[in-house]
Amino acid sequence: MAEKTIDLTLKVWRQESPDVEGHFDTFPAKGISTDMSFLEMLDVINNQLEKEGKEPIAFDHDCREGICGMCGSVVNGHAHGPQEATTLCQLHMRKFHTGQTIVIEPFRADAFPIVKDLVIDRGAFDRIIQAGGHITVRTGQAPEAHSVPVPKKKADTAMDSAACIGCGACVAACPNASASLFTAAKISQLCHLPQGHPERNRRVIAMVQQMDKEGFGSCSKRYECEAVCPKEIKVENITTMNREYLRALASSGE
């Protein structure tokens, strides 16, 4: 932990509300400890702004340990910043060097309207899950947990997909603002488990339809989503979603 400090210039997207035009504000960020997280650096800037009576930069954050999926901005063109498999809150300033200009923008997609500055509305993700990203089991209906064994490999694959935190970086990085990776991860999780099979055909159709309805683009297989995903969700999930879709098309009715 060799702590040192660096001086940076920040260019941050400011936008008062969804309907008004946004612009960039420039702030000097001097004496930033390299042990700070990116969000702690923003805290420091915001504290200064507040001291000056100015409105701080609005940014979403909560757990600050990379699991809640609340934070995320595009930093110098990278969703969640330049470090692989890392959310913005877990990115540390030692990844930057003194004299650098950092451009911070919100995740941009028409399906994610900007609330303020770097804060966006990801309600569309909730609605995709509502369309079918669950197993229809009522509380109390469940059979004994061991009544259905699940091969370890399938369970592990399901867990790989289930690791998605719903942050929206995949959408932010996709040239088509596609939600394919997010949608596919949930479909893949549930189709690898026997508990998810009864609804698999209906699920994939409904979730894809909702994804379209929300105004996300389609997948051009360019892998930006996989590259920026903080939880390393693979494009293979999209392959699985497409396979599920084909299966659903081939089957009649449910």
Binding site: V74, D110, G217, S218, S220, Y223, A227
Partner: peptide, 30 residues
């Protein structure tokens, strides 16, 4: 149709874009 639809999904552009992922020239120029 898909391309046209995809172009309309992000009406505000990023000021800075970075090359990430496997994206090839070919994929961008389809």
């Amino acid at each position: 149709h898909l391309t046209w639809a995809n172009w309309s999904k992000r009406t505000s552009r990023y000021a800075v874009t970075a090359a990430v992922g496997r994206k090839s020239v070919a994929s961008q120029l389809m």
